[in-house]
Each structure stands twice: as structure tokens, then as C-alpha cells.
Computed example of a mutant assay.
Amino acid sequence: MSGFCEGRVVVVTGAGRGLGRAHALAFAAEGARVVVNDLGVALDGARDAESPATRVVAEIRAAGGEAVAHAGDIATGEGAASLIRVALETYGRLDTLVNNAGFLRDRMLVNLDEDDWDAVVRVHLKGHFLPLKHAAAHWRAETRAGRTPVARVVHTSSGAGLLGSVGQGNYSAAKAGIVALTLVAAAELGRYGVQVNAIAPAARTRMTERTFATAMAAPDDGFDAMAPRNVSPLVVWLGSAAGEGVTGQVFEVEGGRIAVMEGWRPGPSVDKSARWAPAELDAVVGELLAGARPPGPVYGSRGH
């Protein structure tokens, strides 16, 4: 253990497998005490027989670290509140929240049931909001008591949330919502010593193995660019006391590549200073689009 996060208490949701597990192990390796949350569900949201959170806790403890499991549903008010209570009651503080939990129910839009929409948006978007809300309430109370924290939040979006993904309308919408939530939280919570950022990771996990089946096969030797552990160093850095002033940002991370994502901002514009007639807009919109940067292609489309 190098001690980069020595003394910090970190909560990671969806930490039983994949990216969340890699994050939990990486924080523990840097000296953090970790609350490992995982509801223990299959890829479609059905409950597993065994809690993966306890297995990750055992891994951390076997390596000499400190961790505790939480198996509550963080997309409920009580589950999210109990997650924060576990950190405070076990370790007496909370420094970092990493929201990562999620699952998939992929369908083309015309086949997407309302239940599939609600379930995915609930776990990804509501499952980010509720732990954030309860953690933020604690940090606000600390600030008002004269103990302004050095608090960090890392949210998990996706390329699907930035560009869209064919067959994943529910997932893409939820992940886009997480970006907007990140921006709002960064603006609102800075006064309480909280920095909030998001990542859009690409790695081999249960959720991505079918989408990237061939490209994500692990190599026989050398650097495995699609290993989840490659994403974790940036998450650990964002969740540490380092990076003062880095907030409201979205980072794409894959293998050894990190990119700052640049969101919506005004491009070419025209102002008539009066109301437009619809018939006038043929040429106007065409000229605006001709001068604009084209958007990235939607994942799964012919252009990607």
C-alpha cells in the first residue's frame, strides 16, 4: 500500500464485480477504508444467491486493508441512507463517494417495455442521486459545524450517455442524466468542500462483454487495455485529496488513454433580431450546420 488515500473513507456502489470491484481494491491498496456496496444481482437485475460484496471485502482484508460490506438497495431512500450510515458508524467519517452501480435491459426502442425503462433509469440515475443526496447532507452538516471536508464524488457515465447507443435507449438516457447531475452537483456542493466529477469508462465487464465481445478479448500477454483495473487509477485520483479545483468535469478513460470530454457549448449562430418565418429556415439551418462540428456517431450505428 502506497498511502495515497491514507485515512480516507470511501464508499463504492456496485463494487462486487467489474469496475466497482476494481475501484474498491485500488482504493484499499492506497490506504483507504472502503465500504463495498453491492445488491448482488444478475445482469438483468435478478438477485444472486451469494453477496459479491462480502467476497470483495474478504479480498481487501486478506491484503491487509480495511473494508465493510453493504448489501442494501441504493436506489431506495432507506438503502442509500443506510449506506452513508455504515460509513459513519463504522469509520466515523466519509470522504469519497463513487457511484458505479448499474445493470442493463437492452432493447430497440419499439420493443422497450416501460418496466425495462423504469428499472434501468432507477438503478443508474436514481441510484446515483440518492447516495449523493445523503452524502451531501452529511458534508453540508460538517461544513456548518466548522469542519469543511475535502470531499470527493465520482459518478459513472458512459460513452452511451455522451453519444447514444443503438438498442440502449434506457441506458443512454440514464447515463446522459448522470452527466447533467454531475454538473449540477459540482455547482451546488462546492461551498461544502465537495468536488464532483464523472467518468465515461470503457472496460471488459459483465455489462459490456456482449457489446464488445471480439474487441475486448484479453491478450495472451502484454498490456490488457480492456481490464477494469485500468480505469481505477483515475477514479482513485479523483477520489483523493489531490486535484484541488477539479470539479464538474467528465473524463473518458480506456486502457492508458484519458480524455477530458467537452460538452454542449454554442457553435455557429445567427440572430435576425426578429421572429423567423419557417420558410426562411431552410437556408439558415443549412448554413449553421455547414459551419458546425459534426456530432460523434451513435454507438452501434453505421457511422461508428
Rank of each mutant, 00 (worst) to 15 (best):
E114G: 07
G190T: 11
A242H: 15
F4L: 14
V9I: 14
Q249M: 13
V231A: 07
A135I: 05
V10E: 04
V284D: 11
A202G: 12
G177Q: 01
D220Q: 14
N99I: 00
V260L: 15
G16Q: 10
R204D: 12
G64H: 06
V9P: 01
T156W: 00
A145Q: 09
H134E: 04
F129N: 00
R47Y: 08
H124Q: 03
L19I: 13
M207R: 11
T76L: 01
A292P: 13
A185T: 01
P278K: 05
V68R: 11
V36K: 12
A279F: 07
L289V: 14
A292M: 11
P149R: 06
D220N: 09
V298F: 07
V12R: 08
W139C: 01
L104M: 12
A198D: 10
T205F: 04
L163D: 03
I74S: 05
V110N: 12
H23C: 14
V36L: 11
S240G: 07
A215R: 15
A101H: 02
V10Y: 07
N170K: 03
G169M: 10
K175P: 08
A101S: 05
I199T: 07
A26Y: 08
V246H: 13
M207P: 04
G40Y: 02
V57S: 04
S165G: 10
L83N: 13
A101D: 00
R206V: 01
G300S: 05
A22Y: 10
Q249L: 11
T148N: 04
G65N: 06
T143I: 01
A202H: 11
V270R: 15
V120E: 03
A101G: 02
D73W: 05
S158E: 03
D38I: 03
L43E: 14
A141Y: 01
T205Q: 07
T90H: 11
R265I: 04
A29N: 08
L288Y: 07
H138N: 01
P278S: 06
V57G: 01
L183T: 02
A42S: 12
H134F: 13
A141F: 01
T76C: 05
A198E: 05
F212V: 12
P228H: 09
K133T: 00
M216H: 13
L189G: 10
